[in-house]
Write a protein that binds this DNA or RNA. Structure first.
Length: 212
DNA sequence: CCCTGATTCGC
DNA sequence: GCGAATCAGG
């Protein structure tokens, strides 16, 4: 019948208890023209199953400051896929200046007031001040550099679990901060987050904007 | 020109 | 929900 075909090699691993939902299976692939670019009989693009693992990894990596492009490479997906996914997840844009002031430093949040633009022509551009949280987190970048950068296996019960792998690493080789957590006796905030003071603050700031 | 992220839009 | 195309800025 219509689509006998292709066994999508969408494995991407799935260590989660439940990652592939029936919906995903139903989605299957196909769609001869998934996108305008692929119009015509172009190769079929295996749609990636965004498992929780991938989503979490992407989110963490991005929070580290890794650009979507690198994350995309790591996950093996396109940059737009990562951006789109993260945006859909509600992950804001940390875009910490800690990366490199060179290429791609554009924060400028704030949605366009006129999305009515037919996407082709010029779009509206709005300039909005950065949220204080972003600035604050940026100031704490030093803390990340001071992180122990240890593996998950070495993380203790009170070690910060904030991912700090600033390089491209496999999901299983992810490195974490490892600094003492703050919720033991921070005196200020006592969250259950297994993060140190610095990362806890960042996490809160992040959740505050979009608690996906 | 490169890079970046954001949004729009078809599937 | 997914990703490409497009846009927009550094």
């Amino acid at each position: 019948m219509s689509r006998p075909v292709l066994q999508p090699f969408r494995r991407w691993i799935v260590m989660s208890t439940r990652s592939i939902s029936p919906a995903a299976s139903a989605r299957s692939i196909l769609s001869p023209t998934g996108c305008p670019a692929a119009s015509s009989s172009e190769a079929v693009r295996a749609m990636v199953d965004w498992t929780s693992s991938m989503a979490e990894t992407a989110r963490d990596l991005r929070r580290e400051g890794m650009s979507c492009g690198l994350i995309a490479q790591r996950l093996g997906v396109s940059r737009n896929a990562v951006i789109g996914k993260l945006n859909r997840m509600g992950v804001p844009s940390p875009r910490e200046p800690g990366g490199h002031g060179g290429p791609g430093t554009r924060i400028q949040l704030g949605k366009r007031e006129a999305p009515e633009t037919p996407r082709g022509p010029k779009a509206v551009k709005l300039k909005d001040d950065l949220a204080p949280a972003v600035k604050a987190s940026a100031a704490g970048l030093d803390a990340e550099r001071l992180a122990k950068d240890i593996s998950l296996a070495q993380l203790g019960g009170f070690a910060c679990h904030f991912p700090v792998s600033g390089h491209q690493v496999a999901a299983d080789e992810h490195r974490f901060c490892g600094l003492p957590v703050a919720d033991r006796d921070a005196g200020e905030l006592k969250l259950n987050r297994p993060y140190c003071a610095h990362h806890a603050a960042r996490a809160r700031a992040r959740d505050g904007q979009a608690g996906a």
